[in-house]
Nucleic acid binder design. Structure first.
Lengths: 339, 339
DNA sequence: CTGTTAGCGCCTTCAA
DNA sequence: TTGAAGGCGCTAACAG
């Protein structure tokens, strides 16, 4: 299969490569006729410019990278949808990398990404126990624009798109308190995540302002082992029958908490009330009492991509002041066909 | 920020670019000492080869593309997980493109992809009404290796990774029949999909072999509008009170069917029994009666990526005979902590 | 309006 | 074992 490149087109048309190139870019300095001729042949031969040659020459790749912990997670899926929509609209390609919450993997990935492969990066950091962000700093120094979303690395002076996590945590907890709960478990994901801290602080503050003592033993650190989490919660519920409420700061923990209650035969919401983060429409179907907090995941993706691409196009650096905080939707009931 | 490239390294080391290049590739024809020197400096300056220059020169990109309808869908999320795992392990990058079930969009995307941007392509075709695969044929002729997964374009002589859809459809329907159902709705996604046809044929055959007449009016073609689907099903259930079973060939239709029953106050499984494809663990939590068929999505992704990358690496063409059919898991109950 | 030329950064003959 | 040179395909000066 002989390659269809500018040289071939030029030969067939008795033109120079440069003219063909210009014609295909609708340059003003090419006669309308030759433009037509060139484009006609290009279409006929199904010419497609070599992206790598072009990237090499112009030093831009029209490609962004998305680095996230998992894709098998409704929040990130929806975010990718938003990212892809914006990228596509602006002619950008999207490379995807999954860290699986692994710090070393994340470091590996960011390492590769310093090679000019991407013009910019959208990132949600892995929930590693370590506080070591040296790989991110290296990446940041190297070149590409970075915008964080949801899970932020606060040590880099760049923009981020997040949700009102503190407030959500506060309201979720307050909701439980107002519903009569006095012994509220906080289910959070292990690791050192900005969002985890914020939600935790909201939980803490809500307890305090309602005169309920913070009980450290009611805080559960989940892992990425769902069954393990369910066991953890089941055991806690068994040992502490006074528990009457749970605030799950991650979707899968909300589901685990639901399963734990089922396993023990404790009724929801009669015995235990649950409020959980969930970006999955179905979760609220599980039980009308499983109150949910939904993040605007798609919009987060769109917003983050928009900020990033704007900066790339205009060659502006990205400043922390461009950060955006969106609001989660609290306590919606998923409408059924009959509402 | 001055770029760290071979030239720079060569200058600093008083070596030629060629030697530096060879040293970094562990070429046999470079002395151990200079290799050390080169690598040391490269590490110190955090040298990262320019991927585009390399791709241009070697005419391989170490990049594969994944073209799927949606990412916000457990099946595809899981598949991507599998794909990414294999790709990463073999040093490949993954570009992602979403068609949103739109034929024109799919054509656009495949058009871009003929430019040598990817060495290969994993694809699950959009559920368009049209039978027009000319864009795929063009792509196929152009160069990159293609492996289809789940949703196949049967007109291209390449490999695919699918599941036993006919059998699943048959067994699902048989399950309902054996449970006493006589008026079984088939909920399928609109469009011209290989998997839809296979599952439909299974449904059809099961009815036939159990002496139940096929009733065309019990086949519902859903769209990608979930609420619309729920309404559609609700209306059907209202008009045809004799309906006692539903087979949903897509996850979201399973959920819609559940919601429709709820809306009408029809008990599951007492009044209506449902069997549905679902790759989402939670779905079976909805109701123990919502029996599920689960595809090995992660393995499908792994398998498809493995076939593709093997072909790329060995520069073998991909043959239809390399196709793989994996088995879905039928009727599992998601185990709870207490099982 | 069109052609010539000079690279982008890298790899790979060929020659020393 | 190393260096010099050419070129992957494309773009962007600079000439004409």
């Amino acid at each position: 299969m002989n390659p269809v490149n500018l040289k071939l087109l030029a030969q067939k048309l008795n033109l120079s490569i440069a003219t063909v190139s210009r014609a295909l870019q609708d340059s003003h300095e090419v006669s309308t006729q030759t433009k037509e001729r060139v484009k006609a042949l290009a279409a006929e031969l199904n010419y497609q410019p070599n992206a790598y040659a072009s990237s090499l020459r112009r030093n831009v790749s029209k490609t962004i990278g998305v680095v996230i912990p998992e894709v098998n997670n409704h929040f990130f899926s929806l975010a990718i949808n938003g990212i892809e929509a914006v990228a596509r609209q602006q002619g950008y390609h999207v490379l995807i990398y999954l860290t699986h919450e692994d710090h070393d993997r994340e470091a590996d990935i960011t390492q590769y990404l310093t090679g000019g492969r991407v013009d910019g990066l959208l990132m949600s950091v892995a929930a590693s126990a370590s506080q070591d962000f040296s790989h991110l700093k290296k990446l940041y120094d190297s070149k590409p624009a970075i915008v964080f979303f949801d899970r932020v690395c606060e040590e880099l002076p760049t923009a981020s798109v997040t949700t009102n996590d503190y407030e959500s945590g506060y309201l979720a907890t307050q909701h439980l308190i107002e519903a009569g709960c006095r012994h509220i478990v906080h289910l959070m994901i292990a690791g050192n995540l900005s969002i985890g801290r914020m939600r935790m602080q909201g939980y803490h503050a809500a307890l305090e302002s309602h005169g309920i003592a913070f009980d450290e033993t009611l805080v559960v650190n989940g892992s990425d082992d769902d069954d393990g989490n369910t066991h953890l919660i089941t055991d806690l519920l068994r040992q502490r029958p006074e528990i009457d409420g749970m605030f799950a700061s991650v979707e899968r923990l909300a589901i685990s908490s639901y399963q734990a209650c089922q396993a023990l035969g404790r009724a929801i919401p009669a015995d235990v009330k649950i409020v959980g983060f969930s970006n999955l429409g179905v979760a609220s179907l599980l039980n009308p009492a499983l109150t949910t907090i939904t993040q605007p995941a798609y919009e987060i993706g769109r917003e983050a991509a928009t900020i990033l691409l704007r900066a790339i196009e205009k060659k502006h650096p990205i400043l922390p002041s461009q950060s955006v905080v969106l609001n989660s939707t609290l306590f919606p009931r998923r409408s059924t066909a009959r509402d």
